[in-house]
């Protein structure tokens, strides 16, 4: 178990270094930041001075090492556009995105899994058919359209919910949270549903397919032949066996939630990382872009590690084979 974690951590370091290299290469290949920062009227001396202070005159390997060293300490340089440290900007925006993603993921899991189980068990019920039909909409409609439709319905027509930005924030240390007030939730709920809908339908369909598969297996038949209670068969024996693929997909999808949050945040003007990166891309604000890249990669690596560890918790077969192989 421990050497498995160590092994995965070593792999993670390599992944992160590769991503760092790609992020860093943005600086080399995407235009000259000095032009962007100083504008066309700057003199040659000003340009040279700026290059010197930004460390752009060092040899590239030196720049890279410095950059990685700084990044490890949470130091990603200055935003070209806003002239503030990128780490501050990110620290300010990150809570908004993480809360949005977390709430969406929870909605997707806690609504998607029960719906999947229900449609798997009651294949022919009317409600199952409605779920499946509606889930097609969730899968096929693009996120931004769902967001706009929700705004139209709940924000404009019914006027129940605010349509943009965060509100009702409370501070816990440096963390601005919207989870503690009703107003905060009223701002959060529409973007969270928008972001969750695709994942929710995906999880529902996956759980359903897996349930149908597992319910056909011999061990379920044998469990029935032993007279076990239906509830125990469905939720103890069957559902647990569907979890490995579901965990895999959910892990990947949390990454996708981060990625899709760019669109949702733009639609709802949600002041998170997604909005930050969109604005940075429009402006060519490379320090923000590259650090976003590194950060998202870091999230993916962490999520994958957690998913791998969850396999161990769920499936005893992996536990044994690993330890057997390691000794």
């Amino acid at each position: 178990m421990l050497d498995f974690i160590v092994q995965r951590l070593v792999q993670a370091v390599f992944v992160m270094l590769t991503v760092a290299m790609i992020s860093f290469s943005l600086f080399q290949f995407v235009g000259d930041p000095v032009n962007n920062m100083l504008g066309p009227e700057a003199t040659a001396e000003q340009r040279l001075a700026a290059r010197e202070t930004l460390g752009l005159n060092d040899p590239i390997p030196v720049q890279f090492t410095k950059w990685v060293g700084n990044a490890v300490q949470g130091e990603f340089g200055q935003s070209y556009r806003m002239g503030r440290p990128v780490s501050d900007l990110i620290a300010q925006r990150l809570p908004a995105t993480l809360e949005l993603v977390a709430v969406s993921a929870l909605i997707a899991v806690f609504v998607g899994v029960p719906m999947g189980v229900y449609t798997g068990l009651k294949r022919n019920s009317f409600l199952s058919k409605i779920f499946l039909t509606v889930s097609l909409i969730g899968i096929s409609l693009p996120t931004f359209l769902i967001g706009i439709l929700l705004i139209l319905l709940f924000g404009v027509t019914l006027g129940w919910l605010p349509t943009f930005g965060r509100g009702g924030l409370t501070n816990i240390g440096n963390w601005e949270t919207s989870l503690l007030t009703a107003r905060g939730w009223s701002h959060l709920i529409l973007p969270a549903i928008t972001l969750a809908l695709f994942q929710l339908t995906l999880i529902m369909r996956l759980v359903r397919a897996e349930m149908l598969e597992v319910l056909r297996t011999d061990y379920i038949k044998f469990a029935k032949a032993r007279g076990l209670r239906q509830r125990s068969i469905n939720f103890g024996h069957a559902l647990k066996n569907t979890l490995v693929p579901v965990i895999t997909i959910m892990g990947l999808q949390i990454g996708a939630l981060l990625a899709f949050s760019i669109i949702t945040e733009t639609v709802f003007q949600w002041p998170g990382m997604g909005l930050l990166i969109i604005q940075a891309i429009n402006f060519g604000d490379i320090p923000i872009m590259s650090s976003y890249l590194v950060l998202v990669a870091l999230f993916f690596v962490i999520i994958n590690l957690v998913v791998d560890l969850l396999y161990y918790v769920v499936d005893p077969r992996l536990r044994i084979e690993r330890t057997a192989g390691a000794h």
Partner: peptide, 21 residues
Amino acid sequence: RRVRGKRIGMVFQDPLTSLNP
């Protein structure tokens, strides 16, 4: 269901797949 297991037991063909892994 109460009859199954208690009064009639059944053994299936494939022991590799009859047990919940």
